[in-house]
Structure formats: C-alpha cells, structure tokens
Nucleic acid binder design. Structure first.
Lengths: 202, 202, 202, 202
DNA sequence: CCTTAATCGAGACGGTACGTCGTGTCTTTAT
DNA sequence: ATAAAGACACGACGTACCGTCTCGATTAAGG
C-alpha cells in the first residue's frame, strides 16, 4: 500500500512519522503486549536500531505514538458566559478523542493496563505527570471564569471537588471500557457537580 | 527459615499455599516484571512444572496470589444507626487492606499496570467482575439502612451517585499510589457525598 | 481391543508381559526417542511406578522388551554333515529374526542407534555382552564339526576370521538398514568365507 | 584462558568456530547426554539463541562439531607401487584419527550410540551417505592401481569383497570401543584380504 | 473368614534440558 | 552521518521427559 521507491531512503521526520504510525496501528490492532519492536520496525519497513535511536525503550515509543495519534484534546477552554455550558463543552471535549478512536480500539488499548497510565498522563489539561499542583488547570480556568461572573466562590472548593468530574469519568471509562455517553456527562454536570457546587457555596 | 523435613514431599493445598505465598512475596518485593516463574518456584522450593500444572501462565499465577494475599475487604457492612458513621466505617474498611500492605508495596504493585485490573477486580464488594447489577452492594445496603431510618430517600439516587465515593477513592489511589488518608475519607464523606445526598433529596 | 474387566487388577507376570509388549510396540512404531515411559505405561494401562519397580531406567526396559520380542535366534546349531550347508543354515538362521520383524521395523529400531547395541548384544549365540571369550560359540561349533569331518583345520583360524561372516552381516545391516538377502549370504559363504578357509588351510 | 576483549563482539565464522570447538570439548569431556546446549553456549561465551540460529537442534550441532573436529582422514591415496604396502598405509590412515582422539574419548563418544552414526557417516572416503555407488572410492583407487601394475584383476572383485577390510574394522571398533592395533591391520591385510584376493583371482 | 503385607492405579512432585521469543546492543554495508 | 539489515547478548517463557514419592484401592496369602 505504501509503495516506496527503492533507492530512496527515508530519514528524519518522515521516517519518524512512519514509525509512529506503524506503532499506533500495531497498538490498536494487537495491543501493547503483542506489539513488538520488531513488528513495528517491519511495518514501518525499517529496523529496530532506528527505533532505539529515537526512543529508549518500548514504553517511550508507545507513549510517543499515543501522544501523536490519540486524538488531541481541545486546548481551548470554553468560555460561554455560563458555567453549566462551559462544563458541558469541556467534558465533551475531553471525551471526543475517545469517541473518535472507537470502542473497539479503546478496548484494545485499555485491556492492556500498561496503556492506561500512558493515556491518562497524556491528557495534559487534566493531569500533568502527577505534578498535583498543575492539576486540573483546565477545570480551574472554567471555575475562575465562573467566579468572575459571580456564579461561584472558588475559595470554598477543594482540589478533590474540582477534580470530581474527571474522577468519575476515568472511573467509568476504566469500568465500562468505552467512551461515556452524553447522558452520562449531563448527569455528572447537572445531578452531581453543580448541585455539589451549590451545596458547597452556602 | 522455612525448614522442611527432607523426605517429606509437599503436595496439594500445602504446596499450593507455599507457592502463592512465594509469589506474593516476590510480587511485593520485586514487582510483576522482575518476578519470574523460576524465582517463585525457587522461593517455594519447588519447580516451574509444578506452577504450570496449576496456572497456565504468569498472569494467572499472579492473579491467584493477589486474590489470596491481598488483604480482604471486611465483609460485614457496618450498621451504627447513623449514615455518616456507617460511611466512615465502610470506607475505612475499604482502605484498611491497602494500609496493611503499605505504600511501598502498593507502588511496587501499581507501578506495574498489569496488576491494576487484578486488584480492582478483586474488591468484590464494590465491583464484581463488571456485572453492573451486583455493583455496590455494600454501599447499597448502607443506604437502604439509612432509608429505613428515614435519613434519605433511595429512589432519588442514581447508580453513578452511589458509586461516587469509590470512584473518588480509586482515582486517588491510582493517581497518588498510596492509600488515601483518614482526612481524605472525612472530606469525601462530609464535604462531598453527604452534601450531595442532601442536595439530591430536595 | 484388549478388553480388561474393571475390578480385576493385573499383577506379577501377566502385568509384566503386558508392559513388555507395550514397550515393544511403542519401540517398533515410534522409535526409541519417541517412546516415553509414560507412553508405555499408558499403552499397558498401568503407570510409571510399576515400570520403575521392575527396571531401573528406560534403557533396561527397552533391553528387556527387545530380548523378549526380538524373534529368537535358533539355538540349535545345524549339523548337516557338510560345512557349506551348515554355514548356509546357520547364517540364514541368524537373519530369520530380522526378516520376521520386517524392514520397516528394522529401520524404526536401527535409526535410533541406541538400539543397535542392545540388539547386537541380544544375539547371544554370536556376541555375548562383549565377553570375547564366549564369542562366536555357534560358529565355533560348526567349525569344530567340520574339523571332525576333516574338512578344515581349526588351529589355523584366528578369531578374526571366525567372526568374519558376522562382521560382514552386521556391517551390511547397519549400512543398508534391512535384512540381507539370501544371495548375499550365498556370496559371503561361497565367495568369501569358504575361499578364505581354503586359502588359510594351505 | 580465552581472554576476549570486551566491547568486541564476535560474529559469523569466528563465533561459529568458537561454538563448534566448545561443543567438541563438551562432547569429548562429558559425552552426548551430559552436553547441554546451555553448557556449550556458556563455554563459548555466547547464548543458546545463537546456537539455535545455526543448528535446529542438539543433534545437528553435534554433527557439525564432529564433522569439524573429528580428525580428518587423509585424503591422499597411497601409491607405493605395491598393493600390500598401499593397503597398510591406507588402513593405517583410516585409523589414525581414532588413535589421535584416544581410547578414552572414543568410548565417551561411542558409548552414546547417537554418535555412532554421525561418526560413521562422517568418514566420507569410505561411506558416502549410503550412496553405494560412491562407496569405497579410496579402496577402489588402490585396487585400480594394483590392476594397472598387473597385481590383480579388478573385474573379479565384488563390492562386498572390496569393502571387507572396512567392514572388519568397523565391526571391531564397535565391539572393542578402541582403535584397532597395527597387528590387527596386519592380520586383516595379510591373513584375510590379500589371501582372499589371491583366491578370487584364480 | 478375616487380617495383613504387598502390589497396583493414579497422578503429583522434584529436577533438568529443550527450544522459542522478546528486548535492547552492536557491527557492517550502503546511501 | 545516518539508514538498512541483521547478528548478538541476555534472560524469561512454557514444554517435555525422566525418575521419585504419596496415597488410597485391591488382592494374595496366612492365621
């Protein structure tokens, strides 16, 4: 399919892209364990040494592939002028990538728990490599905007409350092995998070 | 340390227990990847063939070892006559096993994501092999008792709300790689779950 | 095929015979290497411990099986009143067992050189366990009879000459992996051995 | 003893030679059964995978090692101008390799009958893989030379007669497990083969 | 007829070697 | 200088077979 002129030798970014694509495909199709460095190299029509020159080990390669091909989370924080709408938009934005890659692939990836951590840690808006300070910057911004509009008082909110929507989502994705539905997001926002915010404000 | 009379050959359950103990120790000390079938066999003073007669592969052995030695969750559902006290007792009970095995071991285990799923799926009161019907029977009972006392109305509670405490706990354990503190449980109960219940009742 | 009443338990010689038969069959069908103690035990509808109670190891079992089932060499030394006839009869007698078991089985056995020695050493008339003194007693008797008749003088014959026919036969069986033909025997006797005897007598 | 610069990685023929030498040494010292792939790999300071990349199994490795290190039979056919001298020289040449490796090693090798066939089939001058046409080319040449000198008439000799010396030698080596003596060769030539040739010529 | 010692049947156990496979390193040749 | 090709070092996996041991069931033999 990917006919390559013999004699033309790929290098640099072109080669790297081919490798990451191959890794992503292997990962989606066969899962973390069955994906071998050899299989990736073959699929990319290159060899292992080339992979190891770029990434120190299998994990790093997988992380790179996921980072490149896991559909990106929208970086723009919604600001609609209404907390509820912002939350809806933000959480939908978080789920969009998972919806794009489909239930099948999610299961292929998540069945191998090795990938969880990689995926989780590659949602930079939410968790940034365990550095808890920078946690939840996306959600924070939304809440700050809401405070500016007088909807809530931020000081009353603990980190644990702020991260609640994401905790629920992560729990459900892990449990059900599929992207969560719009109704679920609606319930999380309308029946859990906002009521909790209201209760906290008093 | 475990002097064994030579000439007496262990079999059946006794041998199996020795193996599972050895596996659990290896697992705790060196982690999933470094634990080899050979090392387990040697520690149990037996040989690989005996392991493979009982479990088809490393994963199955690890699962068995975890199931046996992961400290068990208390099966008795607290019933103190007060919802808040019940929740405290129940959630503390959930955390107790993790506290017993210690942060070091938790990290050893959880750093190897292969083990996550096994651990998570071996907390039977909470998640029973993804069969969502039986989900949260422990929490359910507590809430039913509270309803009988007139503290809450159960009908207003969705499954998602009922599983909320566990979702938070799981999220935090995964994120922080240690058993969560008593203060955290207090906050989950007093600042999140009970306020949410109250808010839901109206 | 070998229906056995359940509840009747074989022992002693009956059981032993069944085992040796099973071993012989396994040996003929699958060869020395592929024959396992387990397979023999199963075919004899018994178990390994019973085998090891009788024979110390696989080799001994095989030797016993071969000794029992390798068709026996005729023990009677021909005495026709004529050296040439005696030799014909004697050598034919040596080959008869090999002819009986057939080329196919010979190859099955001889392809596994482990069995050579066993077979060779189980032709007691000719070679008795390497004890060279007793070597060639059969041939010796024939030659002695010939001497009594005045056909030859025994004193001129060295052991090497006396064992010559058998050396040739062994060489050819090993080389060709089949019982040697009647023509071969004729040539050995008429074109080699008797001319050599004659030449030696002068 | 075999100091190897670390950092220089052996490959190809050099490595292969080291392996075959290690195999030969293991074989001579400990015999076929006790020689393990692991022990050979260790002695050659490499690992099993390298062995299995070259030879499919233990047998093939042993064959290769024997073929390489079993002292070679002299390829030059003696031509002294005298049949008897030629025969002496030729048969002595055949035995020389066996003498070189010594009785001890011969027994070590031959006690393991697996090795017989390998050894026998690696005496190419004499038996070439059972292809009977090419049989005995060495002996044939000697006899042809003798015919040219008018010592014998080749047409009267059957293949069985021509291979007689080798048959006797093989028989005795197998039986006695040691290289045969010079006296034995003398007897084979002077008391058996030449008299037989003479007898055949008339 | 009943007890007892020996053997059988069944299968687990201890030990060792085999052959495979995957990761990560290194060498050689070609571009 | 880097790509391509592939061998090498290391070490774990899972399998197979030998020979030993355990335990309960059965049977021959003796009191």
């Amino acid at each position: 399919m990917n006919e390559q002129k013999k004699g033309t030798r790929r290098r640099g970014e072109i080669l790297e892209d081919a490798i990451l694509l191959a890794a992503w495909e292997e990962l989606s199709e066969t899962g973390y364990t069955n994906m071998t460095m050899e299989s990736v190299a073959m699929r990319a029509r290159t060899n292992k040494a080339v992979l190891y020159r770029r990434w120190n080990n299998k994990t790093e390669l997988v992380m790179a592939a996921l980072r490149k091909h896991l559909p990106k989370i929208k970086n723009d924080i919604p600001n609609t002028g209404d907390l509820r709408s912002d939350l809806y938009a933000y959480l939908h934005g978080l789920m969009e990538p998972l919806k794009l890659i489909g239930t099948q692939t999610i299961r292929g990836l998540l069945m191998e728990p090795m990938v969880w951590r990689i995926i989780i840690s590659s949602m930079p808006q939410v968790i940034e490599k365990r550095s808890e300070n920078k946690l939840m910057t996306g959600m924070m911004e939304i809440l700050k905007n809401a405070e500016l509009r007088g909807e809530i008082k931020l000081e009353k909110l603990t980190p644990r409350i702020i991260s609640l929507p994401w905790a629920i989502i992560q729990y459900e994705v892990i449990t059900k092995l599929e992207p969560i539905s719009d109704e679920a997001i609606a319930e999380i926002v309308d029946d859990i998070f906002i009521p909790l915010l209201r209760a906290t404000q008093q």
